[in-house]
């Protein structure tokens, strides 16, 4: 069975040297590299990667999360970055627990504003330093975060549905 393999490149070594201990688990799968970055170093690493020296990753393609409820730190936050200059895509990962706050990258890439609102809406991950952290797709008063693994597919906020839609259940 194929598996992600360890990844290394001159650029990554340079990044590791610059931020000692911040970068772990560099892996590559089907030619797509990714690595984990520590929470304390997230903003400095992102700031550096955005500069020309750091690879000019000026475009935040996507930010999303994956829920692994059995792990000690249950959420993985994924940042997909792209550099027009290098025509290269790389993914960053950040591990975080259920009740921990995550630094917002909206100050680095303005795109992150809505993307982080969606992660907050769907997973309940709170961001620190986000300009406008509110729900984006679900109603503001909704209780629960649907993309968490412990949120059943048939589950919904019955109280909200009854109060606002005037029906017994949306199902």
């Amino acid at each position: 069975m194929v598996k992600p393999e360890p990844w290394s490149s001159p650029w990554l070594e340079e990044l590791k040297k610059r931020f000692p201990g911040a970068i772990t688990d560099p892996l590559v799968f089907r030619g797509q590299p990714y690595f984990t970055v520590s929470k304390e170093s997230l903003i400095p690493v992102c700031d550096f990667m955005k500069t020309a020296e750091g690879g000019a990753y000026t475009y935040l393609v996507d930010e999303t999360a994956v829920d692994y409820p059995k792990r000690e730190k249950r959420f993985e936050i994924i940042y997909v970055l792209y550099s027009f200059q290098r025509n290269d895509r790389v993914r960053l990962k950040l591990l975080t627990g259920a009740n921990e706050k995550v630094p917002s990258v909206a100050g680095v890439w303005p795109t992150a504003n809505w993307l982080e609102r969606e992660v907050f809406d769907m997973f309940g991950i709170e961001y620190e330093g986000h300009p406008d952290l509110r729900r984006i797709l679900l109603p503001d008063e909704w209780v629960g975060h649907p993309l968490r693994k412990d949120y059943d597919i048939l589950k919904q906020d019955d109280a909200w549905v009854q109060a606002n839609l005037g029906i017994e259940s949306g199902q």
């Binding site: 069975m1 194929v2 598996k3 799968f29 089907r30 797509q32 393609v61 996507d62």
Partner: peptide, 9 residues
Amino acid sequence: PPVAEVYHS
């Protein structure tokens, strides 16, 4: 698929 993840656009 194998235990892995991809981003494709």
